[in-house]
């Protein structure tokens, strides 16, 4: 039987923890709103961008661009996007697990895998494997388009110089506030059919006048398209991170409440037992005096 004082301290401690998790929940909720807004703002840009890419790609032959070139795949690079901070349930773990699985299956096929990690969680997790080629940490809190551009440029550079023949992205997709799923996507070479799918919906426009030529426009658009992809993945991850943390912290707070409840029961029982014992003593003493 734990002593009265022990239980009381424990209750105090759990109460403090509940306070912290509650606060973290509220902070995550506020940040989630911001991240969702950012995603919402970006959506119109991404949609229009894809439509324009679709219009363009239908007009030209995809083999002409180094970023779209398909090679025999020997080296695969995986861009893993996770959050910088933990305490958000199994969100990061799911992404990392998916990455591991993908790595294992690629390696089973005899391909070499290198990693580009965005976010501290993936960078630390994969550090010991020695496969991390590049790490970008401490930017998930306040990233901008130019952060995504730096990452995209680095990956494109490696792809163009032959360091990788294929690049994939693994990130956390934001389905809803309650559901976030890890997702995998082909990144490089840029596939014309992905773009053409978007085009089917917006094929109303006739033949365009291009200035400069389609080829030169593509030279500008393809890197931009990469930026858009990376930025999009980062936005999804940051929204998912906050949503996951919100749920995790909500669970933690209710778990704390349960613990407090059961501890209070124990405390009251112990108190009552103490009182009963004392009464017995008094009664026993009075009895002895008779």
């Amino acid at each position: 039987m734990p002593s009265l004082k022990d239980v009381k301290t424990k209750i105090g401690g759990v109460k403090k923890t509940a306070q912290i998790t509650k606060a973290m929940n509220m902070v995550a909720a506020a940040k989630l709103r911001g991240a969702q807004q950012k995603m919402e703002d970006f959506r119109s840009y991404a949609e229009k961008f894809n439509a324009a890419m679709g219009n363009l790609s239908s007009a030209m032959d995809s083999g002409a661009f180094p970023l779209m070139e398909k090679r025999e795949v020997k080296n695969v690079e995986i861009l893993v996007v996770t959050s910088d901070r933990g305490l958000c349930g199994s969100f990061n773990a799911n992404i990392l697990k998916m990455t591991e699985k993908l790595m294992a299956s690629l390696e089973a096929q005899g391909k070499k895998v290198s990693l580009v990690c965005v976010g501290k969680k993936s960078a630390n997790y994969f550090r010991k494997t020695g496969k991390v080629r590049q790490r970008h940490v401490d930017l998930m809190g306040t990233f901008q388009m130019f952060n995504a551009r730096a990452i995209a440029q680095d990956i494109a550079g490696n792809f163009l110089s032959g360091g990788s023949d294929e690049v994939r992205i693994v990130y956390g997709k934001f389905k809803s506030v309650a559901v976030q799923r890890p997702a995998e996507q082909m990144f490089l070479p840029i596939q014309p059919n992905v773009v053409e799918a978007a085009e089917a919906t917006s094929s109303s426009a006739g033949s365009y006048i291009y200035e400069p030529s389609t080829e030169e426009i593509m030279e500008v658009l393809l890197p931009l398209y990469m930026n858009v992809m990376v930025y999009h993945a980062m936005l999804e991850v940051s929204a998912s991170e906050h949503a996951a943390r919100m749920t995790a912290m909500d669970n933690a707070t209710s778990a704390c409440k349960d613990i407090i409840h059961s501890l209070t029961l124990i405390y009251n029982k112990a108190r009552q037992a103490g009182i009963t014992a004392e009464l017995m003593d008094i009664v026993g003493g009075a009895e002895a005096l008779k």
Binding site: L56, S207, Y208, Y210, E211, I217
Partner: peptide, 19 residues
Amino acid sequence: PGYGGEFGILANHAPFLST
């Protein structure tokens, strides 16, 4: 400010795409 210099667009312009 287009690729080849400033350009103006009025209503009923032909489909056009420029950097």
